[in-house]
Amino acid sequence: MGQDAALIDRFLEMMAAQAGAARNTLSAYRSDLSLASQALDGGLVDADAARLARLGDGWRALSRSTVARKAAALRRFYAFLADEGLRADDPGAALPRPGAQRALPKTLSHADVDRLFTTIAERLSAKHSLSSDLRLSALFELLYGSGLRATELVSLPRAAVQPDRPFLILRGKGDRERLVPISDRARAAVAEWRGHVAADRLFLFPSGRTHLSRVRLYQLVKALAADAGVPPDRVSPHVLRHAFATHLLEGGADLRALQSMLGHADIATTEIYTHVDSSRLVALVNERHPLVDAPLRRA
């Protein structure tokens, strides 16, 4: 697998430098390419179309989204080899192309969100509230109030949120910068929590020598959901991000503005929320269309 490993490394270096791929994307590509190399007995670089077709056949038991991800990683790898002159052909066309069927994102109702924040408020109003409750309040205000990704949230610098600045500038997926509005209550929650973070700490949510991990954030969200009476299997940091987007759209937010706030490179990714909110859109047409009150003319 020596040749495979070396060229996988070169490919990932290119993806990071030229395509600006995020760390999680690079990790997923490395995993998919390494597993494919193992399945091909170290012959990934030299595999022909027939071998790739057989490899794809072995993915039949996997979900549509997993197959699509694996095939996309391999196709980009072979395109890279061809561009670099390391292969005379590109056998990527032999890989499966499952239909692009994107599942609707899980979200939460307004009542669910109210229960989560009511539970946090009860903890903060208790006689012996803990600094960890202030941290939880700040985490949830930023997750639901600004739609941050888990990685973006846990790695925020200590001074990222300022009391006199109603926004923060994030560098998200693909190393792209975006402006994210911060509500007054989120800034207030962060200010209360930051008072418990030593001034020499680099991160707003420190843990050990670095910052709170995504796994720990996931655990905190699940634990709060259980205490609030919301089924924990329905709640995660990403579900709170989806709730932020869905509820903003319900409130009349512009799709382009929502795309900017979420940091989506392609508005097609943002448009999935129009499906989640389809009932509101139907009602909007029936109530606000200019012909709604006009009599129907019959022949």
Rank of each mutant, 00 (worst) to 15 (best):
Leu262Pro: 00
Arg187Gly: 13
Ile169Val: 15
Asp32Ser: 07
Val282Met: 12
Leu220Ser: 08
Asp57Ala: 10
Leu136Val: 01
Lys127His: 12
Leu240Tyr: 00
Tyr273Phe: 05
Ser31Thr: 13
Gly145Ser: 04
Gly20His: 13
Phe117Gln: 01
Ala225Thr: 00
Glu122Ala: 15
Asp200Trp: 06
Ser183Ala: 11
His211Thr: 08
Ala68Thr: 11
Phe80Pro: 11
Ala111Pro: 03
Asp90Ala: 06
Ser132Ala: 06
Asp41Phe: 06
His247Tyr: 02
Leu240His: 07
Phe244Tyr: 13
Ala198Thr: 04
Ala82Phe: 05
His289Gln: 09
Ala283Asn: 09
Ile120His: 08
Val292Tyr: 05
Glu84Pro: 01
Gly195Ile: 05
Ala160Phe: 04
Gly145Arg: 00
Gly92Cys: 07
Ile182Met: 12
Ala17Leu: 10
Leu108Lys: 10
Pro98Glu: 08
Arg97His: 15
Ala189Gln: 14
Ser278Gly: 14
Leu7Asp: 07
Pro206Asn: 00
Arg187Pro: 10
Leu139Tyr: 01
Arg241Val: 03
Asp46Pro: 07
Thr269Ser: 05
Ala103His: 03
Arg201Leu: 04
Gly42Trp: 11
Ile169Cys: 13
Gly174Asp: 02
Ile182Asp: 01
Gly208Met: 11
Leu153Ala: 03
Leu86His: 07
Ala5Gln: 11
Gly251Trp: 05
Leu40Ala: 07
Thr107Val: 00
His128Ile: 05
Arg201Phe: 04
Leu35Gln: 13
Ala268His: 00
Asp114Cys: 09
Leu95Lys: 09
Asp277Gln: 15
Leu139Thr: 06
Val113Asn: 10
Gly145Val: 02
Ala21Glu: 12
Tyr78Cys: 01
Leu220Gln: 07
Gln38Val: 08
Gly174Met: 01
Arg51Gln: 04
Val154Asn: 03
Ala245Pro: 02
Gly85Ser: 11
Ala150Gln: 06
Arg176Ile: 10
Leu262Gln: 04
Arg115Val: 04
Leu86Cys: 03
Gly92Glu: 08
Ala257Thr: 12
Ile182Gln: 00
Leu168Val: 10
Ala199Leu: 12
Val190Asp: 10
